[in-house]
Simulated assay, not measured.
Amino acid sequence: MNHIILGNPVTDWLIALLAAVAVAAGLDAVKSILVRRIRSRTAERASRPRGVLVAALSSTRLLVLAILGLYAGASLLTLPDKAQLFISRAAIAAILVQCAIWGDHGLRSWLASTRAQQADDPGRATSSAAIGFLLRVLLWAVVVLMILDNLGVDITTLVASLGIGGIAVALAMQSILGDLFASLSIVLDKPFVTGDFIIVDNAMGTVEHVGLKTTRVRSLGGEQIVFSNAALLKSRIHNLRRMEARRVVFGLEVSHETPEPTLRALPGLIEAIVAGQPQVRFDRAHFKGMAAPAFSYEVVYFVDTADYRVFMDVQQEIYLRIVAMLAEQGVRLALPAQTVHLARVPAAPQAAVPQPLPHLEKAAA
């Protein structure tokens, strides 16, 4: 037991080993106790912060605890300065990595709970996903820089070098970075979110996914349309899901044989039909024109819903009732027609036969 190893008796080495095991086991036991208690309280009363804390503590790595135990045991020994410096730096790096793991799992848990709570609001869920991704990238970037600084690396020069390299990369990847920033604009400004039905130029469909570079839309025909985010924001986007009401304008043409009293009564009859439909606000109905070949009416109303099926059902019912009303009033719808008048042309008189001159007849004889 009095044998010396690296300047320390064997007894001291055994004590240091026992201390390392005890510290690692103790830290693991504390972690398990905390997780069980917090989880039991979370089961009794749902709490989002507690759920995030449980997810973070559950991600504690045994290797990190072992490194901390070795650091505690090494503190009981007399070691060379270089060895002591290496162990201390390893312990600090392990703690930083574990903090990054805690933060990463905590953010993942927060993002999952956010998606569950905001299932009816895809816009906020999309924003949370993008913000969570950026926070995780920032967290790991900061931790890596702190570890390099702990290892003695001059991060000032490194950051400056990364800045110059970043400028070169940015110039070479302008289109990709443009799509990335366009994605952030879509997430933060929310011109549309997942589940919205949009029209972009001649394409239309339901938004399925908003990514870092592209946005994917499922068209009415079933195919998937992929837009680059930058090109999408440069286009005019019609978001039909956010439509609050539909303005409907339609025309009606009746025959010139319709008498004046019936023409005067038609706007009121049409108003009664339109206003009697559910979710409809009547605006106006007017005798618009009297050019050939019909008398024209214009009707305007609003359907207070964005549901296209409801709009078509209302429009169909209005048209059918107008047809029935016109039949009751004896009014015929005007049809395109042309009248051709045929005139008798008098026959042209026959031309007189010319008679030969007398002196020519004598000459011939």
Rank of each mutant, 00 (worst) to 15 (best):
T258V: 12
T215I: 04
E271N: 11
T206L: 03
I167P: 03
G165D: 08
L220G: 01
F250P: 00
K234A: 10
V200Y: 11
F250S: 00
E253Q: 14
L240F: 06
I167C: 09
G166R: 06
G178M: 14
Q279S: 15
G221D: 09
S228F: 03
G251H: 06
L232D: 00
V226G: 02
F250Y: 08
S255N: 06
A231I: 03
E257P: 00
G205M: 03
S185Y: 12
P259H: 09
D201T: 10
Q279G: 14
S183F: 10
V210H: 02
L240G: 02
V210Y: 05
V254T: 04
V210C: 05
I199L: 11
M173E: 14
D179V: 10
S255L: 02
I270E: 05
N202Y: 14
V248L: 07
L177K: 11
H238Y: 09
L232R: 00
M243H: 01
L263E: 09
S235D: 04
E208F: 04
S255I: 05
I176E: 15
A203Y: 15
L269K: 08
F227Q: 00
S183P: 08
V187W: 07
T258S: 07
V274L: 12
T262A: 08
M243E: 07
L240P: 00
A245P: 01
F197P: 02
E260N: 10
T215Q: 02
L171V: 14
P191V: 13
H238I: 01
A230E: 01
I186W: 09
H256D: 02
F181W: 15
V254E: 02
G195S: 10
H209S: 07
